Computed example of a mutant assay.
Amino acid sequence: MRALPQTTVNEMSASQQHYVHLLELYLDNNPIRLTDDVTDVVMGVNTFTAGGHLLDFQHDGDGNAMNISTVTVTLSGVDQAMIAAALQYQFVGRRMVVWRVYFNAAGTMLQPFILFDGRSDGPATEDDPASGTCTIQLRASGHFIDFERVRGRLTNHDAQQVFFPGDKGFEYVPQLGKEIQWGGK
């Protein structure tokens, strides 16, 4: 559980809430910063541009926990500079951060917090020549997406059959009752 300031917690439980999302995509020395707010949002020294481009994002999991967490950001009505960036840069492995910022009743920005921090899996573009629009979807995965993935090859009969059909070398391994460490004692 992340520790949020009490002012943010109070605003989150208010009957009427005003919050916006901020997107940071790090592309070399040219980070893209967008917001889904109707006006630009300044956070520190960074300005998040409101151009109506940040249409939607879907997030699963808690970005602060050690679990598989992904986010898909949909950018619509994208201008030529954004399309050029999507075609020019190698997106795979680039850092993507999604923030949430609450505003109190007076319109003062409260402390932002990170909803998601991970690495981009790359963009998918969809052009509609009839309407002249372009939509870009950016998908990213959390840092622990491969945390539970087993590396290397398994030493069991079924895994061996994938690479060497008919080989019987690992057929009786389950009957040994112990784990074999190759190169170990």
Rank of each mutant, 00 (worst) to 15 (best):
M1R: 06
A3C: 03
A3I: 13
A14H: 01
Q16E: 11
Q16W: 08
Q16K: 06
Q16V: 14
H18V: 14
V20W: 04
H21E: 14
E24M: 09
Y26Q: 15
N29V: 05
P31T: 11
R33D: 09
L34H: 07
D36A: 02
D36M: 03
V38N: 05
V41W: 04
V42H: 00
V42I: 15
M43P: 05
N46V: 00
T49R: 07
T49C: 02
G51E: 11
G52T: 08
G52A: 04
G52M: 09
L54C: 09
L54E: 08
L55D: 15
Q58R: 00
Q58A: 09
Q58D: 13
G61Y: 07
G61F: 03
D62Q: 07
G63V: 03
A65G: 01
A65S: 14
N67W: 05
S69V: 15
S69W: 06
T70C: 11
V71G: 09
T72D: 09
T72G: 03
T72M: 11
T72C: 06
T74N: 10
T74K: 01
D79V: 08
D79G: 10
A84N: 14
A85T: 09
A85G: 05
A86E: 12
L87E: 13
Q88D: 12
Q88N: 14
Y89G: 08
Y89P: 10
Q90W: 02
R94E: 13
R94T: 13
M96L: 07
W99F: 02
V101N: 00
F103W: 03
F103K: 08
N104T: 11
A105D: 14
G107R: 00
T108A: 14
T108N: 04
M109L: 13
M109T: 13
L110I: 05
L110E: 12
Q111K: 07
F113L: 06
I114V: 15
L115N: 13
D117K: 01
R119K: 10
D121L: 15
G122W: 03
E126C: 03
A130F: 03
T133P: 00
T133E: 07
I136K: 02
Q137D: 12
L138I: 15
A140Y: 07
S141M: 09
G142V: 06
G142A: 01
G142E: 11
F144G: 02
I145C: 00
I145M: 10
I145P: 01
D146L: 08
F147R: 08
E148S: 10
E148I: 01
R149E: 12
R149Q: 08
V150E: 09
R151D: 12
G152M: 01
G152I: 02
R153A: 11
R153V: 09
N156E: 11
N156V: 13
N156T: 14
D158K: 07
A159Q: 15
A159K: 01
Q160T: 12
V162E: 10
F164P: 00
F164H: 02
P165I: 14
G169C: 08
F170C: 12
F170W: 01
E171L: 15
Y172V: 13
Y172Q: 14
V173M: 06
P174H: 02
L176F: 07
G177D: 11
E179Q: 10
Q181H: 11
G183P: 03
G184M: 12
G184L: 10
K185R: 12
